[in-house]
Design a protein around this nucleic acid. Structure first.
Lengths: 239, 239
DNA sequence: CGGCACGTTGAAGGGCTTCAAGCTCTGTGG
DNA sequence: CCACAGAGCTTGAAGCCCTTCAACGTGCCG
């Protein structure tokens, strides 16, 4: 019996991952055999900007964000990942080094697959590159959307959008009908996602709390009025 | 003899395109047989935002830009394409409609390939999806770079970067050593690329002309001091 | 319980937008 | 050929959104 045997539970998890959906069991077996699972806790890094890109990562559980460091400590959050998301594929394919860091937001389990194995699988199972292409294509679409937002929208509109987006990814319906974000989210984090400062985020959230649209705690956020938030995100009202 | 026969010259052109490099001749033949070439003049559109995405386009000659329309006429330029670039792949793969418009900047020849044919080719030639993946991956990387710029950089730095990027794509060395951009480029165009207004671009270029860094004409731009421009783009000097 | 990270709030000011008016170049048709 | 329309560009003035700096709360965890 091998140490890292592929259990049925994990097999289900893997087969549910977008990229591997519909793949024959033996493909999952060889993926599993050649990969390692690692636990990384909050604050750690899956990889860091500038490192050689040798592996592809699959987030089995937890939260990870892609951060790009700039001069003078001004970091930018490029994307947020949840269970099932693929991390580092772009770098492993087109770059030799990771152009950003992958920071763990809450304790995560990560499947680490060597770059060569992923390539081998891609060559062997022809539907794999097509699926990967569609995943990356949809990320490109998201990135274009953010470029548009940063170019033409005001700060509070961008903050509203960022929250709506996080709610779609990690939102958990509460008993009282409100929507809680299942992610540690400081003012600084939101600022890095929207290209603004933590002070501006704080002021904005305070204003929204006064109008009972959200409930903003320490690194937590509950949306009381999702509809109203969406209206602000779409610039359909002037509060 | 077929009307749209694949001439040797075009064959060379096609085989030089990133996506098709190293593909067997019969692949190019079937691509050509199932595609059409269309001439679109300056101001026309390859496709418009909101249309059903049924084809993939390859720019054989000319210049095309990807524009996203926003409310109140605020347009954003997401990308600029030159000869050999692939347009509309992302939309044809992941979306049902084009999320942006492809506007022709200077008279262009475009190869139009039905979406189904491209899929068929991708299934038949396994290296094709991998190549496409790498192309899209590098675009995603570029998009992330722009998100970072828009988030943390000042306007004049972004304008400098946009010009440097255009110079890499379309720059033509002049006899006197300067670098002329081979593209129609109004102040408004630059503004749409950098998320600012045409007035700010105008003021910035005027300042740069005074310090003899560029020569800005009506819809044209010559870079007199590329090195200095790069320093501004990288925020290494304070002019 | 004390340190430290997170968060709030105020005040000042600057970079950029917005509005407005006028200029310059280019192409076009009488 | 020239006048004229219109698109592109410049420049000024006003002001606002947002950043920046600074000081002070606040709550969490060792």
């Amino acid at each position: 019996m091998r140490l890292n045997m592929l259990t049925d539970a994990t097999r289900v998890l893997l087969s549910r991952i977008n990229l591997f959906e519909g793949l024959p069991p033996e493909a999952l077996d060889s993926l599993w055999a050649g990969s390692k699972v690692r636990q990384i806790n909050q604050g750690g890094f899956v990889f860091q900007q500038g490192e050689a890109a040798q592996c592809v990562y699959i987030l089995l559980s937890g939260r990870v964000r892609l951060v790009q460091h700039s001069a003078y400590g001004k970091d930018v959050t490029l994307a947020t990942f949840v269970e099932g998301d693929l991390i580092g594929l772009v770098a492993a394919l087109s770059e030799e080094i990771y152009p950003a860091s992958a920071e763990v937001l809450s304790d995560s389990e990560i499947l680490i697959t060597p770059h060569e194995l992923m390539w081998a699988l891609m060559r062997q199972y022809s539907e794999l590159p097509l699926r990967a292409l569609m995943i990356i294509a949809s990320r490109l679409h998201e990135a274009h959307e953010r470029i548009r937002e940063l170019s033409v929208e005001r700060v509070q509109q961008r903050i509203a959008r960022a929250i709506v987006r996080l709610a779609q990814k990690t939102g958990v319906k509460q008993p009282d009908g409100s929507l809680k974000l299942d992610i540690r989210l400081s003012r600084q984090d939101l600022a890095q996602m929207t290209g603004t400062t933590l002070e501006t985020v704080s002021r904005t959230l305070t204003a929204w709390e006064k109008s009972e649209m959200v409930e903003a705690g320490r690194e937590s956020l509950i949306i009381l009025n999702p509809h109203h938030l969406m209206l602000i995100a779409e610039d359909l009202i002037e509060p």
